[in-house]
Design a protein around this nucleic acid. Structure first.
Lengths: 124, 124
DNA sequence: TGCGATCTTCGACATATGTAGTAGAATGGC
DNA sequence: GCCATTCTACTACATATGTCGAAGATCGCA
């Protein structure tokens, strides 16, 4: 499930609260994204075709619902980034994060904590 | 500096060793990427236009050199992912990484190892 | 019940992206 | 010097993406 940039905007708004109408989504788009109503409809149509979103009519109005979870979409995007820019491995990414100082001590600690929990709680 | 998927392939090959000719790059592309020579040339031309790559003629042959570092390109891609899919913050990504069962035990272990090393090696 | 507000469906169009063929110039070995 | 090989510069073209506008179907309220 590969989403384009514009599609991410729509999905983000939809995940926030759903089901939602095109109008709802329009109102929830970040300030600065000032798309025409029909632009949003076009995006939704394409997302429905892609099966990323479900559509049900209520009276004359379509109501939308995500069909892919945010988690799944994130995973897909994350994997793509990894494959494309980090040799497909988490290691180079973590190194990068460390060197770029993108990770604060707090975040690092949190990540470790959660990883520890993961490790014994449910190691595979 | 936003690179497309195909452009990443070229850049990855170029960063590997440079300067390099189109032919060099062609040989270094991952198996499975079997582009025609002219396809690679087209990509290179576009990358030069974008100032992502420098070009110098040697005889009748162009020799290419990256103009953006891998580090910079990675940062840009990483930022894009964050903005687009993770509310623009590292926190949600860290969470995601931790929660995601899709990460193999190996990757998790590696992550932890690096985090440990980072932790005492250089406090920030 | 009539009208403005709102929806929907279609079509359109520019730019971006992926992928490559052609034609002509330069090169190098014989 | 000549020819096959290899380059470069152009052009081309399909599909993807970002953005709507127009026209007609509906709804809800005065």
């Amino acid at each position: 499930m590969k989403l384009t940039e514009a599609e991410w905007q729509i999905m983000n708004a939809l995940w926030q609260k759903h089901p939602a109408t095109a109008r709802d989504i329009m109102d929830r788009l970040p300030a600065g994204v000032n798309w025409a109503y029909t632009t949003i409809k076009t995006m939704l149509t394409r997302l429905v075709e892609k099966q990323a979103v479900g559509e049900v009519k209520q009276g004359n109005t379509s109501v939308y619902e995500p069909r892919v979870s945010q988690q799944k979409a994130r995973l897909s995007a994350f994997r793509s980034l990894l494959d494309q820019a980090f040799d497909g491995a988490v290691g180079p990414l973590v190194h990068f994060l460390a060197e770029e100082k993108q990770l604060t001590a707090k975040e690092r600690a949190e990540l470790k904590k959660i990883l520890d929990r993961e490790a014994d709680g449910k190691g595979e």
